[in-house]
């Protein structure tokens, strides 16, 4: 309650006043101050620019944060004219703002692209979906041939029944793409994780848990919790590839977490998953990227 009142007072009174005083004192607007400041990490700069845009009184600035198809050069032109910034006096302004806007609007574009993959339902009539599914099998089970398309063998990969088509549910093709990316780019880790999942007492279903983790990472993205992580770790726009990579890290981390928790059975999945999510969110909020550690950054 007090917290909300304080935030209200801060944003409607103190913050604009502070901006006004600083503008008078330095002769620079907020965006210009941020862009001319020498930050230790570029991600911080982007974060500050994002906040400045979000709290701006101008709709056009607010929209720059959520626009998933932002025309960046137009946005820079607009900013420089409205804020009256001379390129001769501040030559670095436009390039700095450009770098940050690419990160900021790139995130919104990524949300849009990931959403589209999630909405694409798995269809057995779609040849590319079918190929992808076969590919998943071949990568995960290089020594066993899949006898036929509909078979109990899918159970070995951790699907529910004899046809994985019904298991992707609300995660659509995104769920399958995540699993294939993990199997293709970190084959050793993926197969190791699958072997772990077949533990006699602590077993879980590899593919089904994988699809549940797609849902978890999707929620993180949608809630904007990956924004800062991307600002600090990627120059330019984040791509679908980066989403997949976080997924792989989250999956490996979940596997570790699951065995450390020693659940009585797979029926405890829900509570372990929730606990795991809290941990990941906590680390992302603290901006401590330990959980998304660097095991995977070696890959390019």
């Amino acid at each position: 309650m007090w917290n909300r009142i304080w935030l209200y007072v801060y944003f409607t009174w103190f913050h604009p006043m502070l901006k006004w005083v600083l503008r008078r004192a330095t002769g620079k607007c907020e965006l210009l101050r941020i862009c001319c400041n020498s930050y230790t990490k570029t991600g911080h700069k982007t974060k500050d620019i994002e906040n400045a845009l979000k709290t701006s009184k101008l709709r056009t600035f607010q929209r720059m944060v959520v626009d998933d198809d932002l025309n960046i050069s137009e946005a820079i032109k607009y900013t420089m004219s409205i804020k009256d910034i001379s390129p001769k006096i501040y030559p670095e302004f436009s390039s700095t703002l450009k770098a940050s806007l690419r990160q900021i609007s790139g995130y919104s574009s990524l949300v849009r692209d990931i959403e589209a993959l999630k909405k694409e339902k798995y269809s057995s009539a779609n040849q590319s979906h079918e190929k992808s599914l076969q590919k998943l099998w071949d990568l995960m089970m290089p020594n066993t041939k899949l006898d036929q398309r509909i078979t109990k063998q899918w159970g070995e990969l951790g699907f529910q029944g004899d046809d994985p088509a019904t298991d992707f549910r609300g995660m659509g093709i995104l769920g399958l793409d995540n699993l294939v990316f993990f199997a293709e780019n970190y084959n050793g880790e993926a197969r190791q994780t699958m072997i772990h999942s077949q533990h006699p007492t602590l077993w879980y279903s590899y593919a089904i848990v994988g699809i549940n983790l797609t849902s978890l990472v999707y929620d993180l993205l949608k809630d904007g919790l990956l924004r800062e992580h991307f600002y600090y770790t990627i120059t330019g726009e984040p791509a679908i590839y980066h989403f997949h990579r976080i997924y792989c890290q989250v999956f490996t981390e979940f596997d570790r977490f699951w065995f450390a928790e020693k659940p009585k059975s797979v029926m405890e999945f829900g509570s372990v998953r929730d606990k795991f999510e809290k941990k990941v969110v906590g680390l992302l909020m603290k901006n401590d990227n330990a959980i998304l550690h660097n095991n995977y950054t070696g890959m390019s």
Partner: peptide, 26 residues
């Protein structure tokens, strides 16, 4: 599996069902 149990539950509690994954546990 795939009978629609979770979707029924979500529907009854007026939650969206766009984000369902197969239920592990309960």
């Amino acid at each position: 599996d795939n009978a629609g149990k979770t979707t029924i539950l979500k529907s009854l509690s007026k939650e969206g069902h766009e984000n369902i994954s197969p239920t592990r546990g309960f």
